[in-house]
Design a protein around this nucleic acid. Structure first.
Length: 488
RNA sequence: GGCCCGUUGGUGAAAUGGUUGAACACAUUGCCCUCUCAAGGCAACAUUCACGGGUUCAAAUCCCGUACGGGUCACCA
């Protein structure tokens, strides 16, 4: 049994979209499930028109952030290079193999004009009739071909498909698929600019790089028989195919860059953790054997099993990602969490007096994504205007009158405190509650409202008071008292 | 339109002919906890597996048909 070798072969055309990332993940997992499996990165840049500058770096960054470390690739080399198709082309391999395929009867030279074929296709499409190009160049004499090429005429190399019989292949996910050869198009393998098409480069590269498992989206399901015909013409071994169901945005549309759907970069910018994203997308289209849902990459390597990849499209549910991201955030040690969100806190809270460590502590159980932070902390720097109706809470048994009394009492105690630390504040207020023989909420709820000016806050009255420090706490209580007195 | 693929709840999904009167998770709703909001705990939530036939003692699971959805039919990948 030879080593498992898989490859992630993206085109450098922009941000990394989620479906693509999931394919990379599965490719990585298929390889790394084995101790000696090899995961390869190959850049497919044969469409020179679609190249986007910097896109290759995005690919490297994404893989790195996700921990999908490749063993061979353009940046780290390997024994099967080069790993960029445009560089591979320089050695002339695609042309060489294309001509070899012609010799073997698997392809032919074609001089047809692109526009002419396009014309025919449009007519067929308009009539809603199936279109298959019947290439007259198939019957050109060897001599004529040579003459026309020598004369500098542009040509492409097109696959030959015998319309007799059927072609089958086994897919690990979808099972055996059989098609009539007569329904297969004779597609272009080598473009007139000398670059190979995906259809051809893929087969050549996968063979030369000794790829054992081809993992890709199921949009390739219908062209796979054509690739197999090429393998057969060359007499090469075919890889194991693993076609994955699409990642959908909703019932009808795939998740895609074109629709402006969130890319990996967008999600990270919104405050989702790469590990959480990886974990979540692993579950889109694949189901573990156990009920476990939270997985580290290492755990995924062990648990992953191609046989449990599904066949129907899975809708990307940002709500569940959000939940999972929260799980990751809460599972972190306070130190790690604090380090992670400190930049966000510093952006949201400028006043240097406030203890950012304490703020991190109250935030940890309350946020799901990092972008929620600013809105939660806005009341620290700016004491918002608020309505006295905030004090009314049926469950807490509070209203404006009770709030007024509570705030007066709380202010007295708090202003007498020399030492401003959480346990001290806590004991002082709790003693006061005992003395007054009231419910916790009747004192603490109004204090929290007075200190924050908000109905909902991260942390309770005592935690907020601790962070605000004595001076600001008293200032806000005074302000709140004045507002209450004026209105009563 | 031809060909290929798919169809279990709002979402991800389990189940691979019989302890299923369909797991588990997200979301939702309710309760508990509680100084708010969260977090945490508990509970509710598909008389039913797109629909119609068939096979079988027994079907979400096998077969056929229908409907609907997706993919593909590029000198894009």
């Amino acid at each position: 049994m030879s080593k498992v070798r898989t490859r992630f072969a993206p085109s450098p055309t922009g941000y990394m979209h989620i479906g693509n990332l999931r394919t990379a993940l599965y490719e990585y997992l298929v390889a790394k499930k084995e101790d000696d499996g090899v995961f390869i990165l190959r850049i497919e840049d044969t469409d020179q028109g679609r190249l986007v500058e910097g896109a290759t770096d995005i690919i490297y960054d994404t893989l790195k952030q996700c921990g999908l470390k490749h063993d061979e690739g353009p940046d780290i080399g390997g024994n099967y290079g080069p790993y960029v198709q445009s560089e591979r082309m320089k050695s002339g391999i695609y042309k060489e193999y294309a001509w070899k395929l012609i010799e073997l009867g698997g392809a032919h030279v074609c001089f047809c004009k692109e526009e002419d074929i396009e014309e025919q296709r449009k007519i067929a499409l308009a009539k809603n009739v199936s279109f298959k190009y019947d290439d007259p160049c198939k019957f050109l004499s060897q001599q004529e071909i040579e003459q026309r090429i020598a004369a500098g005429e542009k040509y492409v190399i097109r696959q030959n498909i015998n319309p007799e019989g059927t072609t089958s292949f086994d897919d690990e996910v979808y099972g055996t698929i059989t098609v009539e050869n007569s329904t297969l198009d004779e597609s272009i393998l080598l473009k007139s600019d000398g670059f190979p098409t995906y259809n051809f480069a893929n087969v050549i590269d996968d063979h030369m790089m000794e790829i054992t498992h081809v993992v890709r989206g199921n949009e390739y399901l219908s062209s796979t028989p054509k690739y197999n015909l090429i393998y057969e013409a060359f007499g090469w071994n075919k890889p194991t195919y693993i076609h994955c169901p699409p990642v959908m945005k909703d019932e009808h549309q795939k998740l895609s860059k074109r629709n402006g759907d969130a890319s990996f970069q967008d999600l990270v910018a919104k405050g989702y953790l790469p590990q959480a994203i990886i974990n979540y997308i692993a579950l889109l289209g694949w189901a573990p054997e156990t009920e476990q849902e939270i997985y580290t990459l290492d755990e995924l390597k062990k648990a992953f099993n191609v046989k449990r990849i599904g066949t129907s499209g899975a809708i990307f549910d940002i709500e569940k990602l959000r939940w999972m991201n929260g799980m990751y955030l809460r599972a972190m040690s306070l130190e790690d969490f604090t380090a992670l969100i400190m930049p966000e806190i510093e952006k949201a809270v400028k006043n240097p007096v406030y203890d950012k460590q304490e703020i991190a502590k109250i935030l940890q159980p309350r946020i799901s994504i990092l972008s929620e932070i600013p809105e939660m902390l806005d009341f620290f720097d700016t004491y918002p205007a608020f309505d006295n109706s905030f004090y009314v809470n049926k469950k807490m048994k509070t209203n404006e009158e009770i709030a007024l009394k509570s705030l007066i009492e709380a202010r007295k105690i708090l202003s007498s405190l020399e030492d401003w630390r959480e346990p001290i504040i806590h004991d002082a207020l709790m003693n006061l509650i005992q003395q007054l023989q009231i419910k916790n909420g009747q004192l603490l709820f109004p204090v929290r409202i007075a200190l924050s000016g908000k109905q909902f806050t991260p942390g309770g009255a005592i935690e907020i008071a601790t962070i605000l420090r004595k001076e600001e706490t008293l200032r806000r209580i005074d302000s709140a008292l004045k507002q209450l007195q004026n209105n009563l």
